[in-house]
Computed example of a mutant assay.
Amino acid sequence: MTKEDLKQFKSEMLTEIRQLIKPEQGQSKQWLKSAEVRKLLNISPGTLQNLRINGTLRYSKIGGMIYYKLEDITKLLEGGQS
Rank of each mutant, 00 (worst) to 15 (best):
S82N: 09
G79V: 03
K61A: 13
G46F: 06
Q8D: 14
L57M: 06
G63I: 11
A35M: 10
L20K: 15
N54W: 02
S34K: 00
K3Y: 10
F9E: 02
L76Y: 14
K3N: 12
L51E: 07
R52S: 10
G64K: 11
R58N: 02
D72C: 03
G46Q: 11
L76C: 04
Q19L: 13
I53A: 03
G80N: 11
S28R: 13
G63R: 08
E71R: 04
K22I: 02
L20I: 09
T2N: 14
S60C: 02
Q30M: 11
E71M: 01
D5M: 13
A35I: 05
Q25L: 12
I21R: 10
S28C: 09
S82H: 04
Y67W: 15
E24M: 13
E36W: 15
I62G: 05
T2Y: 08
N42I: 15
G80F: 07
E71H: 03
S44K: 05
G26S: 01
E4P: 03
S11H: 12
S82A: 01
D72M: 00
K39M: 14
T74V: 09
K3E: 08
D5F: 07
L57P: 07
D5K: 04
L20Q: 15
T15M: 07
A35V: 09
L51G: 05
I43M: 07
I62E: 12
L77N: 04
L77P: 01
I21V: 15
E36V: 08
S44L: 02
K75N: 08
V37R: 01
D5I: 07
T47E: 13
Q30I: 11
R58M: 01
N54R: 12
P45T: 12
K33L: 14
T15N: 08
K3S: 08
S28Y: 07
V37C: 00
L76G: 00
Q27M: 13
A35C: 11
I53F: 10
T56R: 08
T2Q: 11
F9S: 02
I17A: 05
Q27V: 13
T2L: 10
G26E: 03
K29A: 11
L70H: 02
Q81Y: 10
R52Y: 06
I21M: 13
L70C: 01
L70M: 09
E16N: 05
K22N: 03
R58Y: 01
K22V: 03
L32I: 01
R38H: 04
L77C: 06
A35Y: 14
K39V: 14
M65I: 13
W31I: 08
K69Q: 07
A35F: 14
I43E: 04
P23C: 09
Q27D: 08
N42V: 15
W31T: 13
L76D: 03
E71P: 01
L6R: 12
R18E: 15
I62V: 15
I73Y: 00
E16F: 12
L41P: 06
M13C: 09
K39E: 15
G63P: 12
K33D: 08
T74P: 00
M13V: 06
Y68A: 05
E4R: 05
I62F: 10
I53L: 13
R52Q: 14
L76N: 03
R38P: 02
S44F: 01
L51S: 05
I21H: 05
I17H: 05
